[in-house]
Amino acid sequence: MTDTTSTKATEPASEGFSLIAFFRSPAAGAFMGFVVVFVIFAIFGFSRNFLSVPGITTWVNFASLVGIIAIPVGFLMIAGELDISTGAVLPAGAMTVAIVSGHYELPVLVGILVALGIGALIGFVNGTIVTRTQVPSFIVTLATLFAVAGLTLYLSILFINNTNSFYQAPAWAKSLFGGKVFGFNSSVFWWAGLVAVFYYFLHKSPKGPWVFALGGDQESARNAGIPVRNLKIGLFMLCSTCAAFAGALQVITFNSATSQANFGLIFNTIISVVVGGVLLTGGFGTVMGIVFGVLTLAIVTQAIGFTEIDRNLSFLIIGVMLLIAVLMNDTFRNLATSWSTSKKK
């Protein structure tokens, strides 16, 4: 009440979705990158059905499975940690559903719950080792990546004497977890729902800022009373659980599962997160940025066949995109920290 002047001064910035605020956000770069890639692909793909239903659903369906994992991987990166064990957790989740519900014919929900439980357990192990030791999370999750991959192969042989498996889910489960609506897999709708939940958690809920604080200055976060250890373990558990869930969706959608580790997934999630504007050093990033990062990656890797661009160029495009994104993220960070000062002058 004494400070009416200062209250007034904050008002223009408090309008929420102003254009400047949008361009200041790390999601802006990811959005613009997506638009550029989409337009270029639409031009070169006009005669090759890039804009047709199969042309679009191909990359959106791919994006949904990567995206379900990429957002929690992004949370961990914002919190200053890396998780590459996802490449083994997804096949572990898929094989679990196939073995529990397929081979042993238990209800499909039991299979999914066991898969999620295994995911949560792997995340708990990752998080506990990372928070109890000084070992960087890259090394810890590299170790669990191989451990889980090996265990999945070993147990698959033990239980079903095969590294691959088939599973036909009952009709209701098939339409809920692995159905199609206008060519879009159920996983797309699950992803959309999870994006909303993740968006709420990181950007709206009062605990979202804690994730940023972990990556910003962990010591200060602990001094400010934030339960650093539990929060970190929780984020690792979220990440592995999501990877296992993606595995469950995958096996129900495609009716088959493999226990081979999915090393490509590791690169895809991390590239999406970085292209989505999350700083590798932590403390900065958005859910919507990651969503656009995933979509961009999916177009370049999956939809190139619907264009006149040579398929073999897709890796080159990804490499160039990643470099541009890293350089832009740095620029955005500098702009973001200096923005208000220059605006006021």
Binding site: K207, P209, F212, G216, D217, A221, G283
Partner: peptide
């Protein structure tokens, strides 16, 4: 040392851990 998070807003920094 520390006590602030450079890539977070003034409001977030002020209320870290005690968010209204």
């Amino acid at each position: 040392f520390g006590g602030t998070y450079p890539l977070m807003s003034v409001g977030h920094n002020f209320f870290m851990g005690m968010e209204p």
